[in-house]
């Protein structure tokens, strides 16, 4: 089908949708059926969300018990001085996660979203976490920076955040790792 035919077909469909409006009112039973299905679909969606929630919690309980649970999030504050490309995460010298970012993910991060980059288990004691961040820095130059944090893992859930922030004093991005209380 040519583009012009497609356009014409779309326009005609739009016109028909308007024209058929009056005829539809003559089918109250069909409308009731439709509404019933729509409500049923919505109700099923609610149940699916609850099921998802239960399975999510079950998975965490199974794989990451609260006493050893360890999560690493990543956030981008503003993102004017760094176009994020990739992140690698090392825990106690071992690479445990790496991620390549899509345009959509970067936008979501720049709009205040936080990505859960890694979820795992750690014993109590001192651990070292290192994040390697790559992207395009100021003046379109390739940018690489690492940040390290040694932290004590207690018997509670531990959460860290890799924070990529714009530093206006020297127009450079800064990578840091902070611990969530």
């Amino acid at each position: 089908m040519t583009d012009s035919l497609k356009t014409l077909a779309t326009a005609l469909l739009a016109a028909l949708m308007l024209l058929t409006g009056a005829a539809l009112a003559a089918e109250p039973d069909a409308a009731d059926d439709s509404r019933a299905v729509a409500e049923r679909v919505e109700d099923l969606k609610k149940k699916v969300i609850r099921l998802n929630r239960d399975l999510f919690i079950l998975e965490e309980d199974l794989l990451f018990p609260a006493s050893t649970q360890f999560a690493v999030f990543l956030s981008v504050d503003a993102g004017q001085f760094l176009k994020l490309d990739a992140v690698k995460l090392k825990v106690n010298g071992e690479i445990v996660a790496s991620h390549l970012y899509t345009e959509r993910q970067v936008t979501a991060l720049e709009r205040g979203g936080m990505q859960r980059l890694y979820m795992g288990n750690l014993k109590t004691g001192t651990h070292e976490v290192t994040a390697f961040v790559e992207g395009m820095g100021p003046d379109n130059r390739a940018y690489k920076q690492a940040a390290t944090l040694a932290f004590d893992k207690g018997t509670e859930t531990a959460a860290l955040e890799i924070r990529i922030q714009d530093r206006s004093s020297d127009y450079q991005p800064v990578v840091s790792i902070v611990e969530w209380e």
């Binding site: 956030s75 205040g112 979203g113 990505q115």
Partner: peptide
Amino acid sequence: ARAKDPVYGWVLYNYHQGEALKALT
């Protein structure tokens, strides 16, 4: 400017990507 709860940040991350089911979960 920053999420005060990482879970909220994670919700927004999915929300801004149009992942409604994930964010609702």
